[in-house]
Simulated assay, not measured.
Amino acid sequence: MRLLMLGGTEFVGRAIVESALARDWHVTVFHRGRHPAPPGVTELLGDRTTPDGLAELAEGRWDMVVDTWSAAPSVVRDSARLLAGRVDRYLYVSSCSVYAAPHTAGYDETAPVVDGSADAGDVAYPEAKRGGELAVVEAFGEDRSLLVRAGLIIGPWENIGRLPWWLRRTARGGPMTAPGPRDTPLQYIDVRDLADWTLSAAERGLSGPYNLVSEAGHTTVEGLLEACVRATGADPELRWTDPEVILAAGVEPWTDLPIWVPREQLPELHHAVHGVGVAKALAAGLRCRPVGETVADTWEWLQSIGGEAPQRPDRPVVGLSPAAEAKLLGT
């Protein structure tokens, strides 16, 4: 198989490239040159946001193209139009953020989506991803388009900082905020499971939208934190704290305490993140590895790069500061 990866040097793109190379596919990576391309690929350089930035893609044929773009939909539009006659299938990594609020537990691919436009410039993230979807379908048609609506993504190469923050915090030890309840269900996908399913789905000719994330309750807050303790070998004092106490202190779920969203206090947000319906993807072969494997492999990767994860410049830094946590815990 001949894969064209738009991007491919960080997180999701990197995982897709690694999965393709493991299958002995021929991989072409088109990127801006800001980060080294994975070994074993054909490398093309260009900036999709500049005039003539797609010049290196003016020739060539591929079986599929994968695109993870999350900014102006017009960038996806231009790439899709250029490649429509020379690529068989377009795989767009979208997001469950395209679904319109309010969210109900178990919402699936038939749920209402936000408005979007393939011709839009800089817009909010949900509209950007929806516009990207529309751009792909416009150029390739529904039968040659696969829209991967990912939920929370974690694992090696993460450049958002959610799981890396919990791992570094656990390794630091001492009194540590453990946001309750312990059995709060979590839903996420390991980036490598996303990559493997996406490429396999494309091989099988699947098309249309698929929510891609583990089953709701794949693990719990307690399961995640215990996995962090095992992976790091640390011995923190987990102080289980009621959601009401955390919220009253002005600590923000999802950002100050990444991944965690209290189910009873913030049900709509919890459903949006941890209540996604995934029956369609499961029926199409999605399999998700245990939380312990994801956490351990992410910690091993963090250690291999010196302990500090890369940070996307267009995303805010997540995690509770030591001072704020000390105040919350009264230490």
Rank of each mutant, 00 (worst) to 15 (best):
64 M>L: 15
90 Y>P: 00
71 A>T: 13
94 S>D: 03
47 D>A: 01
67 D>A: 07
76 V>R: 03
91 L>C: 06
101 A>Y: 11
82 L>T: 07
112 P>M: 03
108 D>R: 10
104 T>D: 13
47 D>K: 03
107 Y>A: 07
73 P>C: 08
64 M>F: 12
73 P>T: 05
102 P>I: 09
113 V>E: 07
61 R>D: 15
55 A>G: 12
79 S>T: 14
85 G>C: 02
69 W>D: 04
99 Y>I: 03
91 L>W: 00
52 D>W: 11
105 A>H: 13
72 A>K: 06
97 S>I: 01
48 R>C: 05
49 T>Y: 07
66 V>D: 02
65 V>F: 12
81 R>L: 15
60 G>C: 12
84 A>R: 14
113 V>K: 11
83 L>N: 05
91 L>E: 02
52 D>M: 05
57 L>Q: 09
81 R>W: 13
114 V>T: 12
103 H>K: 12
70 S>G: 01
102 P>A: 11
74 S>I: 08
67 D>Q: 09
61 R>P: 08
88 D>E: 14
89 R>K: 05
66 V>A: 10
109 E>Y: 04
106 G>H: 11
87 V>N: 11
111 A>K: 13
56 E>I: 00
100 A>G: 09
108 D>T: 14
64 M>C: 11
56 E>A: 15
98 V>F: 08
101 A>F: 08
68 T>K: 05
113 V>N: 01
58 A>D: 15
78 D>W: 03
94 S>L: 00
98 V>S: 01
75 V>T: 15
75 V>Q: 13
99 Y>T: 04
48 R>Q: 04
63 D>F: 03
61 R>Y: 13
104 T>K: 11
92 Y>C: 02
81 R>P: 05
98 V>H: 04
72 A>S: 13
55 A>F: 10
67 D>M: 06
95 S>T: 04
47 D>L: 03
108 D>E: 13
101 A>I: 03
74 S>F: 04
85 G>E: 13
50 T>L: 14
52 D>R: 15
92 Y>D: 00
87 V>C: 11
58 A>G: 10
97 S>D: 03
87 V>L: 04
54 L>Q: 06
80 A>Y: 10
107 Y>V: 01
80 A>T: 05
72 A>R: 12
69 W>A: 11
47 D>E: 13
79 S>M: 06
53 G>H: 04
99 Y>D: 07
67 D>N: 14
112 P>L: 06
78 D>S: 12
62 W>M: 13
47 D>W: 01
94 S>C: 02
70 S>R: 12
61 R>T: 15
